[in-house]
Amino acid sequence: MTAMLALEELTVRYNGQPALERVTLHVPHGAQVAIVGPNGAGKSTLFKAMVGLLRPQHGHVLVHGRPPGDQTDPVAYVPQREEIDWRFPVTVADVVMMGRYGRLGAVRRPQAADREAVARALDELSIAHLARRPIGELSGGQQQRVFLARALAQEPHVLLLDEPFTGVDASAKEALLGLLEVLRGEDITVLVSTHDMNTAATRFELAALLNQRLIAYGPPAEVFTPAHIGEAYGGQALFVGDMVVVDQCCPGHVGDGIAHRHSHTGEEKAP
């Protein structure tokens, strides 16, 4: 199996602070990988380096053996909700059409193929009836679907989803997992960053445990071992018998002895 997405010794630093250290990751064509790690582990940084937003200090990203910038629409990125200005005056159809801008260039008018791709993406996410609505009027789940539709309209080879399970309800989460099943049949390689170790372990064929370094990568059963989780989460992981409880709240407060009222815990049964 040839690796279609390859990160080689990827190192990214912000103002001298390391965010990613020598991450090497080979993802085979059509695979779906969950990227799991604590807050500040570099999950978003990893994605931003993959789309060319951050230039690595060392190492490189290759899609089909070539840098991402060389090709038309190889990688589509679905950002976290907080990164979008929801008051911006654009409709759902406007946003999804942006997915075609890579093919359209600066001034060429949308062709029939572009309009069809947009319509198909809207249908696939069941939001065709919202096409003319401003994005600010939508619910959280609908807003996420708009950006998923835009990513599909790009007809990408690699799809990056940044924390797609955060802040959506259970039905939106199931809908998204259903979409991933469909994409599996379409040979799109998918990387999903998430805090949700349960979903990562049960719904993905491959998982990567990240905390600046790549701690483990492979089938979930081999990745989510107590030793690996302890290494990734440090003081945030609590071992109770054969259970591992990971506290993922409040970066900066963790481990300094301050009790936090809003802590939410993700439990993971060690295999």
Binding site: V51, D73, I84, F88, M98, V107
Partner: peptide, 21 residues
């Protein structure tokens, strides 16, 4: 007028703009 799409992308979603090269 000529930079309409570029200005829209850069203002609304610079991340997508980078992704699209």
């Amino acid at each position: 007028a000529l930079l309409y799409r570029e200005l829209l992308l850069a203002s609304f979603d610079p991340l997508l703009a980078h992704t699209l090269g």
